[in-house]
Amino acid sequence: MGDFVSLLYQLATISFALKAIFLLVSFLYGGFSFVMFNQIRTMNSSVHIGDSSSFFLQLLSLIQIVCAVSLFITTAVIL
């Protein structure tokens, strides 16, 4: 009985640790996406390289932010 409780305790600890790691990584990914979006905006304001391609990159970075926030929310809710 004692071994079974110990095993359950270990599994719960692993699960908690994994949840914390996943939340931290998704949070960092979100931060990274925000920094990248801001950096692309800054670069587009200092150097203008075509209309469509700059807009396309800005849009891609915005999509990345949306993905990062969705991933963080999913990680927080599901786990």
């Binding site: 996943f22 990914y29 990274f32 996406s33 991933l71 786990l79």
Partner: peptide, 15 residues
Amino acid sequence: HTIIMSLLFYAGVVA
């Protein structure tokens, strides 16, 4: 856990 891990991995590669 596996699904979230895979999603994070692919997100990292894309980033």
